[in-house]
Design a protein around this nucleic acid. Structure first.
Lengths: 343, 343
DNA sequence: ATATGTATCCAAAGCGCTTTGATGGTTGAT
DNA sequence: ATCAACCATCAAAGCGCTTTGGATACATAT
């Protein structure tokens, strides 16, 4: 059933039927109701492609997920982010178009999505420091919101980020105040902007207290379980092992915990661990008492808000650029304690 | 730059330009090259909405992800599945449209996606036993491939599944042969088809050896880390604790391992654990020697293949329905051993 | 009686593409 | 010279919708 058929069936013009369904005022009340009833009876819903073509809007938002290599990981926090964003989209009648691409094609994909008219806007995932996607999107005029930020990017843009620097500053400071001096950092990949900021927070907390961080204890890598395990293991074997540890994600924290158990150490008593917690639905940080002390910020909520931001900027393009800074919650769990005296 | 502009700029008709770019034979070779050069110079790529409208095909596949409740988990294996499918789509010029919806709206979303012409086909995720989505899709005539199967569904359909029954049959048999008699099952939600089949395999292996399974040791739940922990903990505290354990996912296996450590038990020596392993990129089962003995099957590969199946059935609609059955690999790891004598 | 609104409705153009059904120009065979 | 058979190109229709710019009828004001 299409508009034309519905219109002839009702003995009305396409114009009137269209206006009746789209809530335009110049339609008689009775007519409108008659049209709406007929539409739902016949299960009519306007063809999106045609509507898009006519209005020039595609009612879809693009999410471009970069995979650095063919076999590289799909960042699991994307799943929750997208779940959050997806909720907002479906509530507002938008579609979510997902492109999984290699890094070479990434820019091309954005501009193609735009020039093909497939999307009205995009969310930029995983910004690196000095990311050139942002400048490029500004140039071609495709509306976007960045999940995270990119330092060294000229010009303003819309973003939503958590205060990574402060979160890791606080967490590190907490450990130092507990007496820890040798603190390891299992950071994410440090070409990613968020990881750089966390590193900065880690360093700031040391510096403010006049403590020299041990760079041998600072690692960077993709936040897998395996990375948490393999990065921490050699550190624990060393004679000058760390007494505390900061992790960039729950997943690598789980790997780190495995290494800790395997080394015969006990969390909190022998070694303290603080992790960032994206509040992933399948990897909650304990039910009553959190298992890990953590800097917590829901990535799903971030997805919801990011989606709202891009939709708002589409509906009112003249609005000034929006930025949202979320503070991570500092959650005290069972994985931290005073530095062991013996070390 | 659109087709019309490109055509007048070249002094050709829209027809010729369109045919030149789409590889139709009735275009002079020189002309074709001239057109192609101009197109790439001006960065022309045809508007997808318009092309869709003209051809009646939208070049997009829909993935509908059901969330049972507002706050329920986003199944993390979706992420890898979609990464796999996405690779196939971008290689073939297809878009992936993701809808995250509550369970009530699910059917409506499928038929809307179809009647709005937003997608050419869909992938059905997370089939339940006797799932009515399948019949419904057959009724409205929207091409689809099911990731998994649904028993009790009348009529044939295309699917890709792993042999869940056999995988869990083998794994259970292996444990029994090692002398284990009290084997726990931490299954997924048992209204899901895959979980029912795994349960069946678990029971079959017992029955074939004339052993009565202990139903008190059989649990079902969403496969989170927390579930693995909380479901196993009371079982370990009981006087008749299980000596072995089957897990439906790596994530709950990680939770189970936590409970095991906390109970002061050691994997393999005191209690054996076999898990299903979807080969998630961020949660690999060890690097050299697998940490868990596992039934392994890459969900990312499944996504790739599912996508290929739906694309193939779109390009040749008269092909008979395709079904793909993958056998899980049985991987021997460090989490299994003979049943402890003392119990 | 004429002019001015006002409330409803409609015909037709247009969005950017593909595709059908010509059209003119060459070539080779009759 | 005539016809058929291509080859290369084009004009125009059509995909299903929105939207512009009237049209019609009726009520109200001059």
């Amino acid at each position: 059933m299409n508009l034309k058929q519905l219109a002839t069936h009702l003995g009305l013009s396409q114009t009137t039927v269209s206006r009746a369904l789209n809530g335009y005022p110049e339609v008689n009340r009775d007519t409108r109701e008659r049209v709406q009833r007929a539409a739902s009876e016949h299960g009519y819903s306007p063809n999106r492609r045609a509507r898009s073509l006519a209005t020039g809007r595609s009612m879809a938002i693009g999410h471009v997920i970069p995979l650095r290599t063919q076999h590289e990981m799909m960042n699991p926090v994307f799943a929750d982010f997208i779940a959050g964003a997806g909720e907002t989209y479906s509530r507002n009648g938008y579609d979510l178009i997902l492109s999984v691409v290699g890094p070479r094609d990434e820019e091309a994909v954005y501009s193609e999505l735009f020039s093909k008219g497939a999307v009205d806007g995009v969310i930029v995932h995983g910004p690196r420091a000095g990311d050139n996607r942002i400048e490029m999107l500004n140039r071609i005029g495709l509306p976007f919101v960045v999940h995270g930020r990119a330092s060294d990017t000229p010009g303003p843009y819309s973003w939503l980020d958590i205060n990574n620097r402060r979160a890791f500053d606080r967490a590190t400071g907490y450990l130092i105040d507990l007496g820890h001096r040798r603190i390891a950092l299992l950071n994410g990949l440090e070409d990613m902007d968020f990881a750089q900021r966390r590193r900065q927070g880690f360093l700031d907390a040391h510096q403010r207290r006049g403590i020299e961080p041990d760079t041998a204890l600072m690692c960077s890598g993709e936040m897998t379980e395996m990375y948490g395990y393999e990065a921490l293991r050699p550190l624990l074997a060393s004679s000058e092992r760390p007494t505390a540890l900061l992790c960039s994600s729950m997943i690598s924290a789980v790997g780190a915990r495995r290494a800790i158990h395997e080394a015969g150490l006990e969390l909190a008593r022998d070694i303290s661990l603080i992790t960032h917690d994206d509040d992933l639905s399948y990897l909650r940080n304990g039910s009553n008492v959190p298992m890990f002390t953590a800097t917590k910020s829901s990535v799903r909520e971030a997805g919801r808000t990011c989606a709202e931001m891009i939709l708002r900027s589409l509906s009112s393009p003249d609005l000034p650029l929006q930025t949202t800074m979320l503070e991570a919650e500092f959650v005290l769990g069972q994985s931290t304690g005073p530095a062991p005296a013996s070390l």
